[in-house]
Design a protein around this nucleic acid. Structure first.
Length: 568
DNA sequence: AATTGAGACAACCGCCCTTAA
DNA sequence: CTTAAGGGCGGTTGTCTCAAT
């Protein structure tokens, strides 16, 4: 454990460490009539320009003398009225700084030191429910400050991203999911759902990020799926609150309309490309290894335009747990999707989570997918630079990709004539990041991939080889669980049909998407649906083993329930 | 021994909300 | 009703420490 240094003990911290960058709220609130600073002799006070003739407010690390003054003041006057601290004590600190110092370091009952495993688990669980509501999370962790939690989380995010590990362990997600079924005292969903709906004038069921988070596992068993499918299939990006979710749906709908330009899954590929481009190093390897060099070129324009912005682009953004759920809807959607599940889960967990026993209909992804498409007249009023030019850029990329995709398809040895989502997963950079993780998991769990193990390759790129990934290439005999393309196109799930239900792979989302679908229209329709195609179409795509997305916005729920019930 | 990168931590910045004048 | 102060909160930045190379 790292010993927290007292800045007062470490003179090197003092004085010049922090410099005034701009006028802050503190300076705006600066009071005059200051006496000489009681800590003025530490040589570190001042330095910040000030207005109104008052003494400069000190910035930077607090000294022990300042701490003592502040503590003494709070003892006498209590918390609050922080600006009065400066007036009454002569402490050359703005009220906000005083409050922060007190709250984070000086107040009693603060728990110092590293988080305990229990606390860590709780933080993860809380974050899965609340998002970046540090203060609220801190309320559940006595003695811990929001800043501590925030720092911890940010560090964790970085670590997970670097390692390609899931942000949310499956156990935590599952727990959150189960708790969501009851009355959750966290009740984050209200915020998120309201964020979802604010400004849209549209009603959506109380579909919250909580549920989405928890149950996104159903789609995120395989990291590549979360990397590409979630982000790209769901329209790549969900708008900020200001933009409104439906604006994005609208964009997705426009994308669908552009499908005549981009037959098949070009937009899906685009999603993958956006993802790939976030990882210059890895993506380059992947692209070259897969003969995707053209992808780089096709997507090159996006590099300068960066239409999605960092947060909205592709897969890795989904892993970024640092976002404000209260500010943007893309936050919870973009990242709180656990890309895969964690080591803490039991060996069967992925099955358990994939078909979450307590899964509610509204917790499935399809609430998004089937949200009524906004009419074209619903123009996006989004002024966020993040989303400016999104559609145009997508189209541009897609056009550039179209030729490239054909080229790619000709190279591929797949029997499929259409690029499936599985194809896109091949170039998912996250798999590269996660490969080692999955190798461990799969080896550890002796997963039913033994004959087609993901662990078979050593080089990250080779893992992306069709042989490794494309379970769809397995014959039904080899992989009865995956079924044939015909199976994938069955109109509805029949619980009694076949005995595949007992096979866990049947419910892996990647299995869903990697079926030997030879009819491109199936995927076209599926993607159209995913992209928020209008609800009046007769589009009735069937995924994998009979999850029927009915034309009625919410009428497919029973099917989902059915599936869930079936595999409890 | 020097370098580098990750982790931990502290503090500031800026936005937003509440409230009182 | 308006406005500004006060305060809360989330995001970001900068520095230090330490371990690995």
């Amino acid at each position: 454990m790292r010993v927290v240094e007292n800045p007062a003990i470490n003179p090197g911290h003092d004085g010049e460490m922090y410099r005034v960058k701009s006028e802050s709220d503190c300076e705006m609130m600066h009071q005059e009539d200051q006496m000489d600073s009681p800590v003025g002799d530490d040589g570190s006070s001042g330095g910040s320009p000030h207005r109104g003739g008052g003494p400069p407010l000190k910035k930077g690390p607090w000294t022990s003398a300042e701490d003592a003054i502040l503590v003494d003041y709070v003892k006498k006057h209590g918390e609050g009225n922080w600006n009065a601290v400066q007036k009454n004590t002569g402490l050359f600190r703005c009220g906000k700084s005083c409050r922060l110092r007190w709250a984070n370091h000086l107040r009693p009952n603060l728990k110092k030191g590293a988080f305990t495993p229990e606390e860590e688990r709780l933080i993860i669980q809380l974050h899965s429910k609340m998002g970046n509501k540090w203060a609220r999370m801190a309320a559940h962790l006595p003695g811990r400050t929001d800043n501590e939690i925030k720092n911890y989380w940010n560090t964790r995010i970085k670590r997970c991203q670097r390692a390609g590990l899931p942000i949310y362990p499956a156990s935590v997600c599952n727990q959150s999911s189960n708790e969501d079924q009851g009355s959750s005292d966290f009740n984050c969903g209200e915020n998120l759902s309201s964020d979802l709906l604010n400004g849209n004038g549209l009603y959506l069921p109380d579909f919250t990020c909580d549920n989405f988070i928890a149950n996104s596992e159903a789609l995120s068993y395989a990291p590549q799926l979360s990397a590409v499918s979630i982000s790209s299939l769901l329209g790549q990006s969900f708008a900020s609150k200001n933009c409104g979710f439906m604006d994005q749906v609208n964009q997705a709908g426009m994308l669908k309309q552009s499908d005549h330009l981009l037959p098949g899954l070009s937009d899906t590929i685009n999603g993958a490309l956006s993802s790939v481009d976030q990882f210059p190093n890895d993506s380059e390897k992947l692209k070259k290894a897969l003969g995707f060099d053209y992808l780089h070129e096709a997507n090159s324009s996006s590099k300068t335009i960066a239409p999605f912005g960092g947060a909205l682009t592709g897969s890795h953004a989904f892993l970024n747990g640092t976002f404000s759920t209260s500010r943007t809807i893309n936050g919870p959607l973009k990242m709180e999707l656990p890309s895969l599940q964690d080591t803490e889960s039991d060996p069967n967990s992925w099955l358990k989570y994939t078909v979450a026993p307590a899964m509610q209909p509204t917790e499935l992804v399809d609430p998004y997918l089937q949200s009524p498409t906004a009419t074209p007249s619903v123009k996006s009023e989004c002024a966020s630079p993040r989303n400016s030019g999104l559609l145009e850029e997508l189209l541009h990329e897609a056009q550039g990709l179209r030729s490239g995709r054909n080229q790619q398809l000709s190279v591929r040895s797949s029997s499929s004539s259409v690029s499936t989502p599985c194809d896109t997963t091949v170039i998912s950079p996250e798999f590269d990041l996660c490969q080692e993780y999955w190798e461990e998991r799969l080896n550890e769990y002796a997963a039913p991939f033994s004959g087609n193990s993901l662990t078979g390759s050593t080089a990250p790129v080779s893992a992306a080889s069709p042989d490794v990934f494309q379970l769809s290439k397995l014959s039904p005999a080899q992989s009865p669980s995956l079924g044939s393309g015909e199976q994938a196109m069955e109109p509805a799930y029949e619980p009694g049909a076949g005995d595949t239900s007992s096979h866990p792979e049947n419910f892996r989302p990647d299995a869903f998407f990697s079926g030997n679908t030879t009819d491109s229209s199936v995927f076209n329709n599926a993607i159209a649906m995913l992209l928020g195609n209008d609800m009046n179409t007769d589009c009735k795509p069937v995924f994998g083993h009979g999850i029927v997305f009915d034309t009625s916005p919410w009428s497919n729920m029973p099917h989902a329930c059915q599936m869930s019930e079936e595999f409890k």
